[in-house]
Design a protein around this nucleic acid. Structure first.
Length: 442
RNA sequence: CGGGGCAUAGCGCAGCCUGGUAGCGCAUCUGGUUUGGGACCAGAGGGUCGCAAGUUCAAAUCUUGCUGCCCCGACCA
């Protein structure tokens, strides 16, 4: 993409309504624009980030054995009346009615709908276990939306729902998602710490929040530093590995301030491993048994030919919150550096030349080479001042830059990982290095 | 929903107190000079001053009502 053809409205100054750095950066870097309180449009740059995040979440769900489907944003009130939540949910639920004055609602979550789909189509234990998920927009009419996409009213969420014959298998489904979340967040270069959580209105007795550490987080968290060093990248979804990794995580202390136990923290965690910091919730998993399968009469035949209510769980990731969460974790106030899995473009070419000169020619040449190598580049071909280009790209946060000015010889390219020292490389070296970084076959 | 604040050009703001036909910086457009960390010169475009009513010869400015947005609190992925 050439910047001169792109839609990237950058702001030099912080809009006054943005109070936290992720909100400021997303506005300034032309990622989002507010349309109403807590409701945002995603501009091209932000949309690319969002889609990349969505894709990583999707891939890891698939690996964990969950199957994707898509449920609508608008739901009938009937199923919510069945489960009893039509009255319980309160004003957070956006209620609407159609021309026939039938009660509808903009879905704040999907337990009812997935249970309905399940009960209408699954009748046998042979189809279990089953994990279904979708990535869909939701609406919760928050009393006070704030912090940009961090706490908004319309948001994109990944929801998985698990169905099992008994509690033991349901717990295994829960553990699979537990691992899937750890792996997903590690791909965003985030340290997401699982913490025991309240089950809240969803109900049930087993629940974890996944919290990433960021100075600007909203809740205070306490944890054992050992939790930061557990690598799950190489762990697969075999039963043995899942149990092992979860055991490893549960060995170490972690709690949000609401659940914090000072004595346990002081006694069971060594002084040098005690970490007290701030966190942002980015995922939440629940096991809630037959709460919905019972109230909504979802039944399957078990081995003995008896009807039983399947055991269920639900597992959410705040997809549209993640760009902001990643920024909170990574933006230092001067520059942003997107994880390479998420970055809107894989590499930025900063052309400091002008029309037709050598730098300009070199820029266009390597731009074509990068496109051919599947290394999705953005080429700054505008006539802005160099300093202005540098500032803009510091803001946008594409992790790798190729800077091409008149300083260098014909076969020299300046390659820079944002925040690191620059290197002088040949064109081939630049391209090969990027292929290596992004794991693209030669 | 309680408490506080704001609403003037795309963004940041001044003007309001003391009423007299709307201004600054950035951004945008044209021409020129620049070009390695937010350039310079000259010119230009862009605002029914959130909406409605009232007071007045005259309202961005005073009064009332409404709407939107932001902040603190309770609530939440």
């Amino acid at each position: 993409m050439k910047l001169s053809n792109y839609f990237l409205p950058i702001l030099k100054e912080n809009p006054s309504e943005a109070k936290i750095k992720s909100h400021q950066l997303m506005l300034r870097a032309g990622m989002i624009r507010q349309s109403a309180s807590g409701i945002y449009s995603w501009l091209p740059m932000g949309f690319k980030v969002l889609k990349n995040i969505e894709q990583i979440v999707r891939e890891e769900q698939n690996k964990a054995g969950a199957i994707e489907l898509l449920m609508p944003t608008i739901q009938s009130a009937d199923i919510w009346k069945e489960s009893g939540r039509y009255d319980d949910y309160g004003k957070e639920m956006l209620r609407i009615s159609d021309r026939h004055e039938r009660d509808l609602l903009y879905g704040p979550t999907n337990e009812e709908l997935i249970t309905q789909i399940f009960r209408d189509n699954i009748k046998s234990y042979k189809n279990l276990p089953l994990m279904l998920y979708h990535i869909q927009w939701k609406f919760r009419d928050e009393i006070r939306p704030r912090f940009g996409v961090m706490r908004c009213r319309e948001f994109l969420m990944k929801d998985t729902y698990s169905f099992d014959v008994d509690k033991a298998t349901a717990e295994f489904s829960y553990k699979k998602m537990f691992l899937s979340y750890l792996k997903t967040f590690q791909k965003f270069e985030l340290n997401a710490i699982p913490m025991k959580a309240e089950t809240g209105p969803i109900g049930g007795d087993l629940s974890h929040e996944f919290i990433i550490l960021a100075d600007t987080g909203e809740s205070e968290v306490f944890l054992d530093k050992n939790l930061l060093d557990i690598d799950v990248n190489e762990v697969d979804y075999s039963e043995k590995n899942i149990n092992e990794i979860i055991e490893r995580f549960s060995k170490f202390y972690s709690a949000t301030d609401e659940k914090h136990d000072v004595n346990e923290f002081e006694n069971n965690v060594s002084k040098e491993n005690q970490l007290r910091t701030k966190g942002i919730e980015i995922g939440h998993i629940f096991y809630f048994g037959d709460k919905y399968s019972k109230s909504m009469k979802a039944l399957v035949n078990n081995k003995e030919g008896k009807n039983i209510n399947p055991q269920m769980g639900s597992y959410g990731i705040g997809v549209s919150r993640l760009p902001a969460a990643i920024i909170e974790a990574k933006y230092n106030g001067t520059f942003m550096k997107w994880p390479k899995t998420v970055t809107p473009f894989k590499v930025a070419i900063i052309n400091l030349g002008k029309n037709g000169d050598e730098a300009d020619q070199k820029s266009n040449e390597i731009y074509q080479n990068l496109i051919n190598a599947n290394l999705d580049p953005i080429l700054d071909d505008t006539s802005e001042n160099p300093s202005s280009k540098f500032k803009n790209f510091d803001l946008i946060g594409i992790p790798y830059q190729i800077i091409i000015g008149s300083k260098l010889k014909k076969d020299e390219f300046e390659f820079k990982e944002i925040g690191e020292e620059k290197l002088i490389l040949s064109k081939e070296e630049v391209i090969n290095r990027l292929k290596e970084i992004y794991n693209i076959d030669k």
